[in-house]
Simulated scan of single mutants.
Amino acid sequence: MLAPIDKISDAAGRLAGWMFFVIGIFIVYEVVARYVFLSPTVWSEELSRFLQIWATYLAAAHVLRRRQLIAIDIIVRASGPRLRRWCESLALLVIIIFCLVAVYFGAGIAIDSIRIGRASSSMLAVPSWLTELAIPIGFGLLLLQAVTELIRTLGGSTDISASHH
């Protein structure tokens, strides 16, 4: 049951990595167009921002799977395995609760944008829901991975002091 969620998180992480790569290409293109050819684009900045938002939210579950979220663990690292497991479980529960809230309200905002036809104020006028949908999807993936990691932690099948890979 846990392996498919890991695979989804890894696939989302790879997709995010490619999105960041494309952002780099867009930015290089924009710099050359603007400063070499004196012909800036109307799309580069907005599409880069769009991809950055999606890549960031898509990468979150993958980062949790690899246990590379930012953490202050100086006290936990110095404690015994029982306290480490308890602290890890508590942290995962906080992540799960936050994800539930973000998915609920994020989906509501995206649905509202679809309903009223909200769009960006740029020349491209990208529908807002295309960006806003990254929040419930990204946090939904993070929620699934956090539940997976909690199951592993409670089952004792993970070493929280080291990453998975």
Results as ranks from 00 to 15, higher is better:
residue 111 I to K: 04
residue 151 I to L: 11
residue 35 Y to I: 03
residue 152 R to N: 11
residue 12 A to W: 06
residue 26 F to W: 05
residue 50 F to E: 07
residue 131 T to W: 14
residue 89 S to T: 02
residue 39 S to E: 05
residue 28 V to A: 13
residue 116 I to M: 13
residue 90 L to G: 07
residue 165 H to M: 15
residue 33 A to R: 08
residue 137 I to A: 02
residue 66 R to D: 07
residue 113 S to C: 10
residue 143 L to Q: 06
residue 37 F to R: 08
residue 117 G to E: 08
residue 139 F to T: 03
residue 110 A to L: 12
residue 105 F to S: 12
residue 142 L to Q: 05
residue 149 E to T: 05
residue 162 A to Q: 14
residue 27 I to C: 00
residue 53 I to F: 15
residue 135 I to P: 13
residue 85 R to T: 01
residue 70 I to A: 02
residue 71 A to C: 01
residue 47 L to H: 14
residue 86 W to Q: 06
residue 161 S to Y: 07
residue 120 S to W: 11
residue 123 M to R: 07
residue 74 I to W: 11
residue 100 L to K: 01
residue 102 A to T: 09
residue 49 R to V: 10
residue 85 R to A: 15
residue 149 E to P: 04
residue 152 R to Y: 10
residue 58 L to Y: 00
residue 79 S to E: 03
residue 123 M to Y: 07
residue 84 R to T: 05
residue 31 V to K: 06
residue 25 I to Y: 08
residue 143 L to V: 02
residue 91 A to Y: 08
residue 8 I to T: 13
residue 66 R to M: 06
residue 67 R to P: 01
residue 160 I to H: 02
residue 95 I to G: 02
residue 71 A to E: 08
residue 147 V to G: 02
residue 144 L to S: 03
residue 82 R to N: 09
residue 140 G to N: 09
residue 106 G to T: 11
residue 130 L to M: 14
residue 54 W to N: 11
residue 83 L to V: 09
residue 40 P to W: 03
residue 87 C to G: 01
residue 101 V to D: 13
residue 111 I to F: 12
residue 115 R to H: 06
residue 152 R to D: 11
residue 120 S to Q: 12
residue 29 Y to F: 11
residue 98 F to T: 15
residue 72 I to M: 04
residue 94 V to Y: 13
residue 87 C to T: 07
residue 94 V to S: 11
residue 158 T to E: 10
residue 151 I to C: 12
residue 129 W to K: 02
residue 11 A to Y: 13
residue 162 A to C: 09
residue 129 W to C: 08
residue 25 I to Q: 03
residue 162 A to P: 02
residue 53 I to K: 12
residue 122 S to N: 15
residue 129 W to G: 06
residue 163 S to L: 02
residue 146 A to I: 12
residue 9 S to D: 03
residue 13 G to C: 01
residue 70 I to P: 07
residue 21 F to S: 12
residue 95 I to P: 03
residue 139 F to D: 10
residue 78 A to P: 08
residue 114 I to N: 09
residue 95 I to D: 01
residue 37 F to W: 12
residue 11 A to V: 15
residue 79 S to K: 02
residue 79 S to P: 00
residue 122 S to P: 14
residue 109 I to W: 03
residue 145 Q to W: 01
residue 39 S to L: 11
